[in-house]
């Protein structure tokens, strides 16, 4: 942390760039304090979008993965599509989402959902399709229904993979929200950054950027801890 600050300050001194191009830690700190109300409001808005989007995206991802594992043809058809969809620059979809869903909360949440659900689906589907061999062998001789097999063996065995997917989703989610705010709308940290940039208030933009990073880290740490605790409770370590 201190090293980053020192490096940052050194870069400002060495390059001699004016504050409106590269503000040092001090002006950014001052901007953070001066605009704390605006930043806090924007942060709350962005955090809200992120959390709702993450929850919806994870739910959608889980449902899709379960459907794919239950109906094999669906799974076989969608699995490659899922990978290909990763090649679509989500950024490019943001204007379309704004076009369809307006300038409110919806397109931002949709953005987060889009960015979150693919890794969640992918991770859970992979887990569901690769159940532990020895446990499957024993279970198969017990005469279970396919549904019981999914519910009592394949799904619980895939939970660690699902957790990895949700962790990835938690990393991407704030990015999705900020991108959504860049494209359309007046609220949130992304919009604040854009406005600050337009008015050459580079220090405020940096302040907002730092809050975005802090928000992302806090979200990841929280999700990571919750998932780890959940897995330990379920007998995984």
């Amino acid at each position: 942390m201190l090293a980053v600050l020192a490096l940052w300050q050194a870069a400002v001194w060495l390059t001699g760039l004016p504050t409106y191009l590269l503000p040092g830690p001090r002006p950014v700190m001052q901007a953070l304090i001066a605009s704390r109300t605006a930043i806090a409001q924007a942060a709350a808005y962005t955090a809200g979008e992120t959390l709702i989007g993450l929850a919806l995206g994870a739910t959608l991802g889980i449902a899709l993965a379960l459907a794919m594992a239950t109906w094999r043809p669906v799974g076989r058809a969608l699995a490659p599509a899922l990978i290909v969809s990763q090649a679509i620059p989500i950024f490019a979809l943001a204007p379309i989402l704004t076009l369809w869903l307006g300038f409110g909360l919806a397109p931002k949440i949709a953005m987060v959902v889009l960015i979150v659900f693919v890794p969640v689906t992918q991770a859970l589907y992979d887990g569901l399709m690769a159940p532990p061999a020895a446990q499957m062998d024993v279970a198969l001789t017990m005469g279970p229904s396919r549904c019981a097999m999914l519910r009592h063996l394949r799904l619980p065995a895939a939970l660690p993979r699902l957790a990895s997917g949700v962790r990835l989703g938690a990393i991407y989610a704030p990015v999705g929200a900020v991108i959504g705010e860049w494209i359309g709308g007046a609220r949130g940290l992304g919009a604040l950054m854009l406005q600050a940039n337009g008015r050459m208030k580079t220090d405020l933009m940096f302040a907002a950027l730092i809050v975005v990073v802090a928000l992302s880290l806090a979200l990841y740490a929280t999700v990571d801890r919750m998932l780890a605790r959940f897995l330990v409770r379920r007998g995984f370590c």
């Binding site: 062998d137 939970l159 379920r234």
Partner: peptide
Amino acid sequence: PAALMGQDAGLLPW
């Protein structure tokens, strides 16, 4: 119809 105990215990960890 068989009951199986594999070489790997294959317990469900959860």
